[in-house]
Write a protein that binds this DNA or RNA. Structure first.
Lengths: 158, 158
DNA sequence: GTTTATGCAAACTGTTTGCATTGCT
DNA sequence: AGCAATGCAAACAGTTTGCATAAAC
C-alpha cells in the first residue's frame, strides 16, 4: 500500500475542465486523495517531493489554485496563517467532519458526532439558500469556537 | 450618534482579566463595538486612527490578540489572507449571521435566513460536544462554499 | 516606582508573480 | 508546433518581534 493509484474521478473531471494532466498535478492529487486530513500547501509539497522531487512549492500552489477554483478541492483557513486543502468529496463523504477550534491555544479537534442531524438540517437550509441567493452549494464548514479543557483553566488564572 | 460611548461590558470584563485599560485599547474596543461587520486589523486601524492618531498598527494587533485570547473578541479567517475580528456577542446577538463563500471569486454573502432553525440544532449539538470533549463553546462559524451565480456560469465555459 | 503597553523599524512567513524553460497534447 | 505548466528567484502582504520610551496602576 504505497500510494493509492490515481484518483480516476478527480483525474477525469480535471481534464474535463480542459486542463493538462502532468506528473506533478497527478502527484498532488494523489497526495490529497490519500490524506485523511486537511493538508497545508507545504504538507502536500512534503508528501509529493520524495516521489517526484522535481516538484516545486510554486506548482503546488498553482495546482491547488486551479483545483479550488473548479471546486474539486476545498480550501479553508483555521486562522493559523496557513491555508488547508482537502478533496471535496462533499459533505456525505465518510471522512467528513466538523471542527472545534480552541481560541486559547489554536488546537483543532475534529468531530464527527452529531453529524447526521446536522447534515439533515443543513440540507434543508442549503436548498433555501441556493434558491434565494442563486448560489450553488458544494460544501460547508462548521466550526465551534471556544476553550479546550486546558485553556479553560488557564483563562481563570489570568 | 458619533461613536457609541464605551462598551462597559467589554471594558469591565477586560480589566477583570488583569489588563490595563488604555486609550488605544478603549478606542479599539469602541471600533469593534460600533461595527456591524467583521473588521480586519487594518479596518480597525483606519477607524481608530482619526480619533486617536497616536495609535499604531502594531498595537491594534497586540490588543486584538489579547481580546481574542480572552474570548471577548472573535477572530476568523475567510481565506483571503487577512483575519477578521468581531465582538463576541455570541450567536444570539442581533448581528449574527452565517456566510456563503464563493470558491470561484472569493465573494462573501452574509445571510441571516434560516438562522433560527440552525441555532436550535446547534444548541443541542453544542451541549453534546461540550460534554464529550470537555470544551467550552462560545461561538460558531458556519459557512457554505460553492459558486455564486456569476462563477457558476464562468465555470461552464472552461 | 514598577510594571505593562506602545510605537517604530526590522524580521518573518505564507503566498504570489515574472520570466525563461520544459513538457503536454 | 503551439500553448499550457513548471521552477527558480524575487516580490508581496499580513502579521510578529526587539527594543527603547511612555503611560497605567
Amino acid at each position: 500500500m504505497k500510494k493509492k493509484q490515481g484518483s480516476p474521478l478527480l483525474h477525469g473531471r480535471f481534464k474535463g475542465y480542459g486542463y493538462r494532466m502532468t506528473q506533478g498535478r497527478e502527484a498532488i492529487m494523489n497526495a490529497l486523495a490519500g490524506a485523511k486530513d486537511h493538508l497545508s500547501a507545504e504538507d502536500i509539497y512534503m508528501k509529493v517531493h520524495p516521489a517526484y522531487p522535481a516538484i516545486g512549492l510554486t506548482s503546488v500552489y498553482r495546482t491547488l489554485e486551479v483545483l479550488v477554483s473548479t471546486g474539486l478541492v476545498y480550501k479553508f483557513d483555521f486562522g493559523d496563517g496557513r491555508a488547508r486543502y482537502e478533496i471535496s468529496e462533499g459533505p456525505r463523504g465518510e471522512g467528513h467532519h466538523h471542527h472545534l477550534v480552541c481560541t486559547g491555544c489554536g488546537r483543532i479537534i475534529d468531530y464527527a458526532d452529531f453529524i447526521d442531524e446536522e447534515l439533515a438540517l443543513l440540507k434543508k437550509t442549503e436548498a433555501g439558500l441556493s434558491r434565494k441567493y442563486n448560489f450553488t452549494i458544494i460544501n460547508h464548514l462548521i466550526q465551534f469556537y471556544g476553550f479546550c479543557h486546558k485553556c479553560k483553566n488557564r483563562k481563570n488564572d489570568k
